[in-house]
Design a protein around this nucleic acid. Structure first.
Lengths: 140, 140
DNA sequence: ATATTTGCAAACGCTTTGCACAGAA
DNA sequence: TTCTGTGCAAAGCGTTTGCAAATAT
């Protein structure tokens, strides 16, 4: 697996150790499609008899984030959600307030326009986050 | 004060009571420029010898939010920040990662373009949030 | 009189951390 | 052998809530 390699390289570069828990949690994550949170990950681990404590889950999430394997974002209820980092272009989110589904989109016009705005304010852009909340096609 | 009127109307409409704590907290908020959080508000109240407990602060924030007097947003560290609702058009935020300053901007091109995107996905937009993080002019 | 509101402190939910033991290098 | 990693349970942190007393209507 590609992600496993990425993790092992990161661990080696930092002098950290390769452990079965980290590998197992990573495998769990990479088989997850879409977004997930720590608790869901822990529940899945339990369900699959993967021996990983909550602490290891949380610590692994920090680690994977540092390694650039996953991205974290904080939802409007204050909880953290994660997704596997793709090499793809930055994308934004459409969040359905009825069913909770998160759809992704990316749009160049908006990206470019942000740069213009930042230029106007003398602002050096590092990252951005655009979330649109509403009701998805199925729920209407 | 205009906000006070708005609050009192809301209280009356809901059968809630007008209390000195609510008025004092509201006054504190309306004299605050820019963004604030619950703890800062509480600290200010203490500093000004305003008799309001943490609980009342938090409960008032919920109330004022419902009354449409303030807006809440959850920052990427998971904490809530508030600002007095203006009647103005929706605005977005430029957040400086060095000094923490939050600048506001609004942009029609982006707003319009969002509508197009939502149309494409059959998504009924309710609200959106655009945050750009980076380094502000002063901090560069 | 009767409902809501307050203050206090305890509870909450998610996340982080101290510690002693286990395990990789 | 010497660090790092793990699990557990406790602590942290911002926020919410149960309760009895206070207060607005």
């Amino acid at each position: 697996m590609d992600l496993k390699l990425k993790l092992h390289e990161y661990l080696a570069s930092k002098g950290y150790k390769k452990t079965k828990e980290r590998d197992l949690i990573l495998r769990l994550i990479s088989s997850t499609k879409g977004h997930f949170d720590a608790e869901k990950l822990y529940a899945n681990a339990m369900r699959m008899n993967i021996p990983a404590s909550r602490a290891s889950i949380y610590r692994s999430l920090v680690l994977f984030k540092q390694a650039g394997i996953i991205n974290e974002s904080i939802r409007q209820d204050g909880k953290a959600v994660y997704e596997v980092s793709t090499g793809r272009a930055h994308h934004d989110h459409l969040i359905c307030v009825k069913c909770g589904k998160i759809e992704e989109f990316s749009d160049n016009v908006i990206e470019k326009h942000q740069e213009q705005i930042c230029g106007k304010y003398g602002f050096l852009i590092q990252e951005h986050r655009l979330e649109i909340k509403g009701i998805c096609k199925n729920c209407r």
